[in-house]
Amino acid sequence: MSTNKEEQLQLLVASCREGDRKAQETIFSLFSRKMFAVCLRYCRDHDEAEDVMIMGFTKVFTRIDAYKGEGSFEGWIRRIMVNSALTEYRKNAKRMYTVDIDAVQPDTEAVAYQDDTTEMKYLLSLIQGLPGHLRIAFNMFVIEGYSHKEIGEILGITEDLSKIHVFRARKQLQQKIRNAEPVFCA
């Protein structure tokens, strides 16, 4: 980020600390798309991801004083979004049921690989289709870059169980991709 943009961002953060609604709206506009994508990777669907993102931004603005200007502001927001998604997952985990992956019928709908965006949407839908505990560990390790030790500490599981979750998630994703019937568009 250029120095001018960094200065503008710091001014926005300072205004948010004073409760300036316009500054909050601007920060929301600047980061909402990226943060929605982060939330979507952890959530089951768009509605849940939107709810998590809104809860996350509420935390951002109520806890803005906790941001000390050290490190990336975007990274600080991202961490809040991931933590909000994990909180929502834990809250919903009590109401979730599990389904044996072998009992699930494969989706017979063809997948179109028209461009990178379509392929990314398809991959995201596959990740969202993973059981919650596998999806969370996979996202944290592969996408967010947490170590297995950190994942274990955050989720309250062993480091080895984190490795098993990521391994199983990868295997399930590979199987889903192998079973897909891509349609190539000219």
Rank of each mutant, 00 (worst) to 15 (best):
R44I: 07
R44K: 06
R44S: 12
D45Y: 12
D45C: 09
H46N: 10
D47A: 15
D47H: 02
D47Q: 06
E48M: 08
E48S: 13
A49W: 02
D51V: 00
V52F: 08
V52E: 14
M53Y: 00
M53Q: 15
M53R: 09
I54F: 04
M55C: 01
M55H: 04
M55Q: 03
F57A: 08
T58C: 07
T58Q: 13
V60S: 00
V60F: 10
F61C: 07
T62H: 03
T62K: 13
I64G: 09
D65M: 10
D65S: 13
D65T: 00
D65N: 09
A66E: 14
A66F: 08
K68M: 02
K68L: 11
G69Y: 09
G69M: 11
E70P: 07
G71Y: 06
G71V: 15
G71F: 02
S72L: 08
F73P: 06
G75E: 15
G75Y: 11
G75R: 13
R78I: 04
R79P: 07
R79F: 05
I80D: 12
I80L: 11
M81W: 04
M81T: 09
M81F: 01
V82F: 11
V82Q: 09
N83P: 03
N83A: 10
S84T: 05
A85L: 03
A85S: 12
A85E: 02
L86S: 14
T87C: 06
T87E: 01
E88H: 06
E88K: 03
R90M: 08
K91A: 11
K91I: 08
N92F: 15
N92H: 09
N92Q: 14
N92Y: 10
N92K: 06
A93D: 14
A93S: 08
A93V: 05
K94S: 11
R95H: 03
R95Q: 10
R95W: 10
M96W: 10
M96C: 04
Y97I: 15
Y97T: 12
Y97R: 09
Y97A: 14
V99L: 15
I101H: 04
I101P: 00
D102V: 02
D102R: 03
A103E: 10
V104I: 10
V104L: 07
V104T: 03
Q105D: 13
Q105F: 11
P106C: 05
P106N: 15
P106M: 09
D107V: 06
D107Q: 03
T108A: 13
T108F: 07
T108L: 14
T108K: 07
T108V: 10
E109Y: 09
A110R: 13
V111P: 13
V111A: 01
A112Q: 01
A112N: 00
A112W: 05
